[in-house]
Deep mutational scan, measured.
Amino acid sequence: TQVHVDGVTYTFSNPEEAKKFADEMAKRKGGTWEIKDGHIHVE
C-alpha cells in the first residue's frame, strides 16, 4: 500500500500500518487522508 505525502511516497506491505501512518501524518499536518486509486493520499 502506498502513502503519498507532500510528493514523497512511502510503501507499506500491511494496509493497516499504512492507514495508521497516514493518520499520524495527517494529524501532524492538520489535514486529512483519503484513499484514491488504491493509494492513500495525505492532504
Rank of each mutant, 00 (worst) to 15 (best):
A26R: 02
A22K: 01
F12D: 00
K20Y: 10
V8E: 13
G7N: 10
I35M: 14
E43G: 13
S13W: 12
R28M: 15
I35D: 05
G7A: 06
H4W: 10
D6N: 06
A22I: 01
G31K: 03
E34D: 08
V3T: 00
V5L: 08
E17Y: 08
F21M: 03
G31D: 05
E43N: 14
H41S: 06
R28F: 14
R28E: 15
H41W: 15
T11L: 13
E43V: 15
T9E: 07
A18T: 01
K20G: 10
T1E: 04
M25F: 06
Q2P: 08
H4L: 07
H4A: 04
S13Q: 12
E17I: 10
V5M: 12
R28Q: 15
A18L: 01
S13K: 11
N14E: 11
E43P: 05
P15L: 15
I40F: 13
H39L: 09
K27Q: 14
K27D: 14
G38E: 04
E16N: 10
H39G: 07
E43F: 15
T11H: 13
A18E: 00
T9V: 14
V8S: 09
K29M: 15
A22F: 01
D37M: 05
D37S: 04
G38F: 04
V42W: 04
P15K: 10
E17K: 09
G38N: 07
V5D: 04
E17C: 08
R28G: 13
F12Q: 00
Q2T: 11
K27N: 14
V3N: 00
Q2I: 13
H39T: 10
T9G: 04
D23F: 06
T32V: 10
K19V: 15
A26P: 01
H39D: 09
G30M: 04
T9P: 04
V42G: 02
K29L: 15
H4G: 02
Y10P: 00
N14S: 11
E43M: 15
V42M: 06
P15F: 15
W33D: 03
A26K: 02
H4I: 09
E16K: 08
V3K: 00
E43S: 15
E34W: 14
T1Y: 11
I35Y: 14
H41Y: 15
I40S: 02
H41D: 04
F12C: 06
R28N: 15
F12T: 00
S13L: 12
D37A: 06
H41E: 06
T9Y: 09
K27A: 14
E34K: 11
T1D: 03
E24L: 09
K27C: 12
T1C: 11
K29F: 15
D23I: 13
F12E: 00
D37W: 04
T32M: 08
E16I: 09
D23K: 08
T11S: 11
D6A: 07
K19I: 15
R28P: 07
A26T: 09
G38A: 04
S13A: 13
Q2E: 10
H39N: 08
Y10C: 05
E17A: 11
G38W: 02
T1I: 13
G7C: 08
S13F: 11
I40Y: 14
D6Y: 07
D6R: 04
M25H: 07
G30Y: 04
W33H: 03
I40N: 01
Q2H: 13
M25K: 05
K19P: 00
G30L: 04
E34V: 15
D23N: 09
E43Y: 15
V3Y: 01
Y10K: 03
A26F: 02
I35L: 13
K20C: 09
H4N: 06
E43Q: 14
M25T: 12
E24V: 08
